[in-house]
Design a binder for these strands. Sequence first.
DNA 1: TAAGTAAACGAACACTGTTCGCGCCGTGGA
DNA 2: TCCACGGCGCGAACAGTGTTCGTTTACTTA
Lengths: 256, 256
Amino acid sequence: MTSPPVPTPPWRAARKDRKARRALSRDAIVDVALKVIDAEGLDALSMRRVAQDLDTGAASLYAHIDSKEELMEEVLDRVHAEIGTIEPRLEPDPENWQEQTKEWMRRGRRVYAGHRDLARAAMEQAIPTGPHALMNIEKLLALLRAGGLPDQAVAYGVDALSTYLTATVFENSLLESSPAQTGQTVEEYFGQVRDYFGSLPVDRFPNIVAMVEPLMRDVGDERFEFGLDLLVGGLARYARPRGTDAAAQGQEDAQA
Amino acid sequence: MTSPPVPTPPWRAARKDRKARRALSRDAIVDVALKVIDAEGLDALSMRRVAQDLDTGAASLYAHIDSKEELMEEVLDRVHAEIGTIEPRLEPDPENWQEQTKEWMRRGRRVYAGHRDLARAAMEQAIPTGPHALMNIEKLLALLRAGGLPDQAVAYGVDALSTYLTATVFENSLLESSPAQTGQTVEEYFGQVRDYFGSLPVDRFPNIVAMVEPLMRDVGDERFEFGLDLLVGGLARYARPRGTDAAAQGQEDAQA
DNA sequence: TAAGTAAACGAACACTGTTCGCGCCGTGGA
DNA sequence: TCCACGGCGCGAACAGTGTTCGTTTACTTA
């Protein structure tokens, strides 16, 4: 098979080039996937799209990753890492657990908001089991336990907080991306909805018509903060009595 | 072009048969779509699948409906009608608005739960504008206003409640449908997660390990009821002072 | 009866996630 | 040094998806 030296044909050279940047790996794939989401949104993410940025075909990805679903889990866990590593050492303070919890939630919101509509993917994940996602659950559990809540309240509380976080961030991303598909800005879209609500028949929808302004006010921080206060404040009612007021409250659930 | 009478060829006869049941209409399409969702789940819903039950092709549907998205809006509004028509006349009672609100939420949950994973579609709808959806918002607004909440608290409160409803119902449907795809029951899936959580390294995840049981307890009513109580109880803090306690609270948002 | 119109429809387009099987390539053993 | 092996890369294909095009069909109106 020893043949005399011959200039390699162009297609083989091209092949060589491609093989040369053999940077194909699990991490590289997840990297690119997240970059695509950040740049073009979740809908633009396809196996072919990821492969394209890696100068290869979609089939090649399946040597490193079982399915797109698994890829998404990996991407989501990377984002969970981003939430957790901003302030790696968090010492739950029993005197300050409410504000700490809120701050943690705000951090999560900021991080998610920085990745377009990735929160939609987070919603579709039933129970997150990635290491960094677990770390975040662990942190939240620690905060609520520091508040002295009964175990069941801690568990349901963490669940409610997580649900609230992903759901609100997702809805926010919807409000930004769905009017963009028809080429209008968020303000235009909101203006249209405001007008529509205002134009409803007053006899059938008196409250909507009367409440158009408060309903349409702010899509962002204030709205999020309101619900957050509802939840954390509600959880605080379960807290171990401290200071003057008793923590007793008449609900039968969330027993210790 | 006048040709002598000839027995219609079989294929034309077949065509005749199909045309005879010209029951194709907007309502009929929405009917079938909802039936498909109820019977086979949201993922099974495709334009071709709907057309098949109507003995036609997918293209024929587009004479009555602009897009699949519009079809989903129609389906969702039908379900919203189902929520609203169970108790068409609801008189908001200022003395009882909290329990009325909770009951309304429970009703919504029951209805959604009766339609498989349709709640996922509800999540993806940015701002519902269907007539029956608006009617439900109207009802919720009336209830919170009867409680004497400041306008902004009413608006944000309705939003938080709606979000909580769809998000929790959606998560519940996920927990039921996602393990079913791999052929296991919900109990098996939950057992696996429980075992996994329990097997985590105690030094890194002390709270998760300690809280496995409360975390994994109940996927249903109790969990929902807990979050519901958090929200409604939190809203009640904004209520107009009645009886002894003052409703003042230090948050700066949700001003009237 | 003739014309006009609106619905129905088959085929096609551009996508999607995933699988199959071939061929290249770097590494370990003889 | 040579060779075989095994894993990875990858083009092509499969079975789907929502949607559109151009045509045929059926019904209504003049």
